[in-house]
Design a protein around this nucleic acid. Sequence first.
DNA 1: TTGAAAGCGTTACCAA
DNA 2: TTGGTAACGCTTTCAA
Lengths: 335, 335
Amino acid sequence: MRSVMVQIPNTPTSADVARLAGVSRATVSYVLNNTSAVRISEPTRRRVHEAARELGYVPHAAARSLRAGHSRTVLMPAPAVPVGVLYGTFLNEVQGALGRLDYTVVQYGSVGLEGDEAARAWAELRPVAVLVPGAGIGPRGVGILKRSGARAVVTLGPERVEGAHAVLMDHEAVGRCAAAHLYERGGRRIGVVVPEEPGLEVYSGPRLTGARQALRDTGATVTAVPLAYTERSAARLAADWPGLDAVFAYNDEYAMLLMRALQDEGLRIPEDVAVIGADDLMLGRLLRPRLSSVRIELPSGRDLAALVDRAVRAPGGEPEAHRVLGVSVVRREST
Amino acid sequence: MRSVMVQIPNTPTSADVARLAGVSRATVSYVLNNTSAVRISEPTRRRVHEAARELGYVPHAAARSLRAGHSRTVLMPAPAVPVGVLYGTFLNEVQGALGRLDYTVVQYGSVGLEGDEAARAWAELRPVAVLVPGAGIGPRGVGILKRSGARAVVTLGPERVEGAHAVLMDHEAVGRCAAAHLYERGGRRIGVVVPEEPGLEVYSGPRLTGARQALRDTGATVTAVPLAYTERSAARLAADWPGLDAVFAYNDEYAMLLMRALQDEGLRIPEDVAVIGADDLMLGRLLRPRLSSVRIELPSGRDLAALVDRAVRAPGGEPEAHRVLGVSVVRREST
DNA sequence: TTGAAAGCGTTACCAA
DNA sequence: TTGGTAACGCTTTCAA
């Protein structure tokens, strides 16, 4: 009655495998999961495997985790904006490392969801751990996830969130490092580029703050310089240059853009304006003068995966906070 | 007996909500899902909502889709290599558009999985559709997914796969376009950069082939030029330059790298060697001479989402194949 | 308007 | 060594 009417064959279940192999569903489960508590005869095993192969049986993850009461899914909200090479590589590393620890990593496309709403959507999947980059979650969101069985919530960003483990990316340090370098090289009226593109405030804010911190009590001034990632915006800024003698340009891409616009206006780098970026991209080395940059060292994906794993295994523990992000100036010719 | 022993409160189920609200589980389901076939009194609705809020109830996606027999999950294998900004933006667009069509987009971290193995892992999640970028799946994989209930498999890449819908990214056209332009500008000994980084063959191969096609019967020669994305590799290549008078450098980043290395060797661009990249990145416009580039037009994320949606709703239909990728040369100063 | 009960695909316990 | 059975959380049909 059931499979006769449909053209597309119903997807085979373990019951189908059992029927074909002439055994019970339990036996199928034992065989396919290599359950060590139970000994199954070799001929039976073969029959079961054979039947599974023939039907193209694939276990149903939802049913399995429903029964088990937990999953090994680690959920990461997918970044809504295309993320830099550095960070992108890092996220891939984390993914690979978690995979090797036998977790299933799922990036959840959360475009359009915000705050607790997003947390609730993630919680529906009952992940064993959640890894949130940026500032996508608050204490309430963490609560929702934990109550839904998440054994670890780890944030990856500039600030700590109550109840969650934190991998603190100290972007203030980036700003401090850049500003200190510019001051040391003689800069006194120092600009800090703040990208106009939305979504970057999480990083640009702390970088600006860090620069301010570093130059407090030095007599140097710090000016926020808004800049969009377009040639027009850069040209306008350069044409109307507010007389700054040094700039920390947020990252290497903005730095390259700005440097070119300043040069086109006849300003000499670094004599008239010193420019430093961040991320130490290779492309910055191709310009003339070569671009100085703040090199940012992210933790290894393996370390982060290990942190998640530890948190999952010992869910009771106090949330740890790790300050990461090694920063150092790579001085080239633009400062 | 059950919740007394655990410190972490058990995650609330709809039964808990029902108990607190003093109604049956059925009623809870009706209220929370706004089931229109059934009328529930306003006071009852309020009590249910109240109870759900108080307990922090979040429905269990696995249980729901198990019962329903299907999900609205669209699965995309996460690209294993960090992907360019162009393609990354496109993937984000697709994700957003699918989200607006009420699909849940899940990027599955498939590092380390290959071929049918990967397909099987994806199939365990019983997605309603699978969107595979690159060359990550074969006909057998498609079969596995379809038998597991996927109503649409869409590949996104240079080649068609039996049984799957195809969004054909015609990278040969990119190569053809670049090569034709170089020939027209006077190039006769033409090089095509082939990145040494693994994972890029899917794109670099067709681009090389396309260049060969375009120059067949013209008398011009086409030479594959291996290049790693490092200054050393570029310097070595430039020092040992095989006398080519024009190069298609795979994309703008490799082009920038190569151009700088050639300049450092004293070769003039474009007089001695013409260079063209691809992707039309802004950064290419910052070099001197400004970099010429093949501009690649991807389809809109909304179109692709619509294709997926159509395929899901009418799963019987013949697989469609769409040739996308508009290509055009943006000539600047390097050719 | 509400409730009881069946069933989705798995696995684990207990019995044979 | 194998099989029956209950239970995971949810939705939906049927009955009250």
